[in-house]
Amino acid sequence: MNEEHASSDVENRLRPLWMAAQSGDERAYRQTLALMATRLRSFFRRRMPTLLDDVEDLVQETLLAVHLQRGTYDPAFPVSAWLTAIARHKLVDLFRRRDRKEGLHDEYDDVDEAELAGEPAEPHARRDLAVLLRALPETQRRAIELTKLEGLSVAEAAARTGASVASIKVLVHRGLKRLVEQVKKAPPETLAPLASPPRGPRNARGGPSCFL
């Protein structure tokens, strides 16, 4: 993102925010991540025009990496260069994973409309969510139940489980991602209501994640 659009103005906006965030300013951190998300979105869109459905996933994956690896940032280098290096790494990783898994699952757009069930009914959705959650590793399931179903804050969930705040964040993100993957993979007869795609305009952030 810093190569073609030699983005010295992006760097100028990003750097002061990022430095404040690094020293613990939560508001600046929030702004930095939002700014980074925008940059990442256009970075990935330009590089994977055939995989636009995966862009938002990759943006999130990269933001998570930024968060987990913020300690590896060296102030001697531009933030945008650091971000680009991570983004490129995540992109390469995606291509490698896709190479291996290509052909294992259908794109939503290719599914025959006639095979899809109607709108999900609430009770079904809840039952299926329970089914899906049971398939998650215990720690991920617990983290999701606490933060997403019981509505605790991450800090409260951390206190409740004894895990660190950082690891709750990771568990929730990984767990939700895994749930989405399961929904995508599951054969229609076991998960018919959840497997139907959202009607109407597709969620801009791609497919089934709007359920979660």
């Binding site: 020293s23 613990g24 939560e26 999130q60 300690g71 940032y73 964040k169 994640s209």
Partner: peptide, 23 residues
């Protein structure tokens, strides 16, 4: 999960970046 929610979750109580992680 929406990206805004992820950002909110990551930033909440994040504190300062850890120091000297590599060493």
């Amino acid at each position: 999960m929406h990206t805004e929610q992820l950002i909110d979750m990551l930033a909440r109580d994040a504190g300062p970046a850890p120091r000297a992680v590599v060493a």
